[in-house]
Simulated scan of single mutants.
Amino acid sequence: MSEVWTHPFKMGALARGPVTLRLEPDAATLKALAPKLGVRAVKSLSADLRLRTWLDGVEIGGRFQAVVEQESGLSLEVFDQTVEGPIEVRLVPAGSPNAPDPEIEIELDPESPDPPEILEGDTIDLAAYVIEHLAVEIDPFPRLPGETFDYTPPQDDDSPFAVLKRLKDDHG
């Protein structure tokens, strides 16, 4: 997805201290993102990020907010859905002693932070992390607010076994 929207950030920029950024793609980029995210349209997207050094790498924190146009899986009506969430990423350079060891099995705890990702090179594509976090938060089975699925099974059971049972009961 990063070919649609990129925002490279050089790690060396953190030498002077933490950096705060606001990312907002232009209209053409929003249009190009929609099919990549599986929605009808991305009407708005913004992310407020703060970057700071972390161990021998970088920590990216912040929040994103977007408005996406989706189609209800129940009524097929089109509606706008606000999607928002936190962004929390830690990166360390390849070969770092703080990188997770691929030989050791990691026990995942949903309450603990994710292990750091490995950074190849000295440039981070911040837009890719915003898109990744947005994609995770988009509801894959959207419904209009308040819309519920009410299914009532048919009263007549026309399975072959039901027909045989009725025949047996009628001629029993």
Rank of each mutant, 00 (worst) to 15 (best):
E132W: 12
L144G: 15
R90W: 00
V78D: 11
Q65M: 11
T20H: 11
W54M: 10
P142C: 05
L33N: 11
S46D: 14
L45K: 03
K36P: 01
V67Y: 09
E111F: 08
D150N: 15
P140S: 15
D150C: 09
H171D: 11
D158H: 12
A94I: 01
P110Q: 14
H133A: 15
G57R: 01
A162N: 03
V42W: 04
K36R: 15
L51P: 00
D139F: 01
R143Q: 12
A41M: 03
Y151H: 12
T152P: 07
S2W: 04
K36S: 06
E103I: 05
E105T: 08
G146D: 00
R63P: 04
L21R: 12
D109A: 10
V163K: 10
T6E: 06
Q155C: 04
S72M: 08
L14R: 03
L55P: 01
K31Q: 13
A32K: 10
Q155I: 11
A135F: 04
A94S: 07
T29E: 06
F64H: 05
W5G: 06
G73I: 05
E103W: 09
A32S: 05
A135G: 11
T53W: 07
K10I: 08
D26Q: 13
P18H: 08
L45D: 03
A128Q: 02
A128Y: 03
P145A: 10
L74M: 01
P154A: 15
R22D: 08
G38K: 07
E77M: 04
S72T: 04
G12S: 14
A47D: 02
I138Q: 02
D48I: 07
D80S: 12
E147C: 07
G121M: 05
L91Y: 15
D114I: 13
L51Q: 02
L74G: 01
R63C: 08
K10P: 02
M1V: 01
P97S: 14
E111I: 04
V42T: 06
P102Q: 15
P140M: 06
D101F: 02
S159W: 02
K168M: 04
S72E: 11
H133D: 15
R63Y: 03
P116M: 08
F161R: 13
A135Y: 08
A34D: 00
D170M: 14
V67A: 13
E103V: 12
P142Y: 03
V83W: 08
T29Q: 06
K168E: 07
Y129D: 14
K168R: 10
L164V: 00
I118E: 11
V163P: 09
Q81F: 10
D80I: 09
A15T: 09
P140R: 15
P142F: 05
A47M: 01
H133Y: 12
V163T: 03
T6L: 10
L91I: 02
V4E: 09
V4G: 06
L108N: 12
T148E: 06
L144N: 14
F149W: 14
V89S: 04
A99C: 06
R16S: 13
T148A: 12
G73C: 08
I87H: 00
L167A: 13
P145E: 06
